[in-house]
């Protein structure tokens, strides 16, 4: 049950409602990760915080299980998302230096509450 919820929430984070179709794909693939971990449990309970946990673990806990699960959801969404161009620089070139700065700063700002949350998880 927990795994299914995790799948729904992680895929929704990357794919929106389109993610629902791929829950079984995630469940098939995620076998090696089927262990409870406090960060994933928290994210399932409070999906609103998934974005700050994504940023926080990126900066402070790169190897945690939550990030591994999120990484799998990322890989699935890269394959199945309807707007695949956003993964193809030849078709949709990146936003350049201002865009890199914007997204990096945004991520660091999110990592602050994310990092504080991680202290308790």
């Amino acid at each position: 049950m927990q795994e299914k919820k995790e799948a729904e929430i992680f895929l929704k984070y990357f794919l929106g409602s389109h993610g629902n179709q791929f829950v079984s794909v995630y469940l098939n693939m995620a076998n090696p990760f089927f262990r409870a971990d406090p960060v994933s449990s928290f994210a399932v309970k409070y999906p609103f915080f998934i974005s700050v946990l994504d940023a926080g673990t990126g900066l402070f806990r790169k190897d945690c299980l939550f990030r591994k699960k999120l990484h799998l959801a990322f890989a699935i969404s890269e394959c199945v998302c309807p707007d695949r161009e956003k993964f193809l620089p030849l078709i949709k070139p990146g936003p350049g230096i201002p865009g890199i700065v914007f997204h990096s700063v945004l991520s660091f700002l999110k990592a602050i509450p994310g990092g504080i949350l991680l202290l308790f998880l």
Partner: peptide, 21 residues
């Protein structure tokens, strides 16, 4: 992208445009 995204110190979701650049 998924092969490098976990190496960046960023939120994975924010990494997509960053990696494209």
């Amino acid at each position: 992208f998924y092969r490098v995204v976990k190496e960046l110190p960023l939120a994975m979701k924010n990494s997509i445009p960053v990696l494209r650049s």
